[in-house]
């Protein structure tokens, strides 16, 4: 009887072993990315093409850029695909990633209610527009979630030259102190609404409150033209070079995290910046509008 149960256990163990072996042989990598790449629908087109060409399948975990970078630092994923250039370069510089591949860019727009109480319609200078919004104390919704969009918005507030409030939060990481900054104009909780939520949620929030908001164009198009009940907000300020939004892909460094599948993630990154990958990105249309402009082939 005892022998019998031993045998059964052995068989089960062997089975588990073969199964896990089978999984390992599959070309699957995990990728943390920003909500915008997934919400815009680009990945739904891109990833099947990737699998056709290279056989690599990508498990996507969509989060804010901050959380995605954190995932990369902790080695929870094999590759990250995010948009916060300065932070990405720092990420590579600190040895968490091997290299930043510039993949594509799109742009941000400043939206607001059609009646435009702050009078920013037609401005092409984003900092100027924000200054007017702050001057009018018109409701402004901020992502406030440490995402790429939030990073960009904070940078724009700094360009305005307005007196800003800055809060540093110290966190301990591996025994070392690390500071996270949060910059915002005065008026927090009154007209400056920092809601700490994703882009789509923030858009419906701003629409509900008839507030101003900075959003990436992809999500805006989706919420304006792709929904049964479209949002009422309109584009009031666009075209400022400061509103450009570059995306980069970074394979996680196997020296930091030996378990990552570096070969696959490198192939993935190289495919993205290859002619093939870039063509797929350039041809992607959301509701008839081009969303992403390729960065790798232009140079």
């Amino acid at each position: 009887m005892k022998q019998m149960s031993m045998r059964i256990i052995l068989v089960i163990l062997a089975f588990c072993f073969f199964c896990s072996n089978g999984l390992a042989a599959d070309k699957i990598i995990k990728m943390s990315t920003t909500t915008s790449t997934q919400a815009s629908g680009l990945l739904d087109v891109l990833l099947p093409e990737l699998e056709k060409d290279t056989g690599i399948r990508v498990k996507v975990i969509a989060k804010g850029t901050g959380a995605a970078i954190r995932d990369g630092m902790d080695g929870n994923v094999d590759v990250i695909f995010v948009h916060a250039k300065a932070r990405e370069e720092k990420f590579v510089h600190e040895g968490f990633g091997t290299k930043r591949y510039a993949v594509m860019h799109n742009d941000f727009v400043i939206l607001g209610p059609a009646k435009d109480s702050a009078g920013i319609n037609g401005l092409t200078n984003a900092a100027e527009a924000l200054k007017k919004i702050a001057g009018a104390k018109a409701a402004f919704v901020s992502r406030g979630d440490d995402s790429g969009t939030h990073t960009k918005e904070q940078a724009l507030w700094e360009y305005t030259g307005l007196p800003l409030e800055k809060k540093m939060q110290t966190i301990l990481k591996k025994g070392k102190k690390k500071e996270i900054s949060f910059i915002h104009p005065p008026g927090l909780g009154q007209w400056y609404l920092s809601i700490g939520q994703g882009m789509g949620k923030a858009l419906t929030f701003a629409d509900e409150k008839q507030a101003y908001i900075m959003a990436d164009r992809g999500t805006y198009i989706k919420y304006k033209f792709g929904r049964d009940v479209p949002i009422d907000l309109v584009v009031l300020c666009e075209g400022d070079p400061a509103l450009a939004n570059p995306y980069g892909v970074i394979p996680i460094n196997p020296k930091k995290h030996p378990h990552v599948k570096y070969d696959l993630s490198k192939t993935f990154a190289q495919w993205l910046v290859s002619k093939r990958g870039q063509t797929v990105i350039a041809n992607y249309r959301l509701l008839g509008k081009q969303l992403f402009y390729t960065d790798a082939l232009a140079r």
Binding site: K63, G66, I69, D145, D146, I171, G196
Partner: peptide, 15 residues
């Protein structure tokens, strides 16, 4: 509770 959910999303768990 919403602050906790947010800090989780941000990847900073201290708060």
């Amino acid at each position: 509770t919403t602050a906790m959910a947010l800090e989780y999303d941000k990847g900073t768990f201290t708060l």
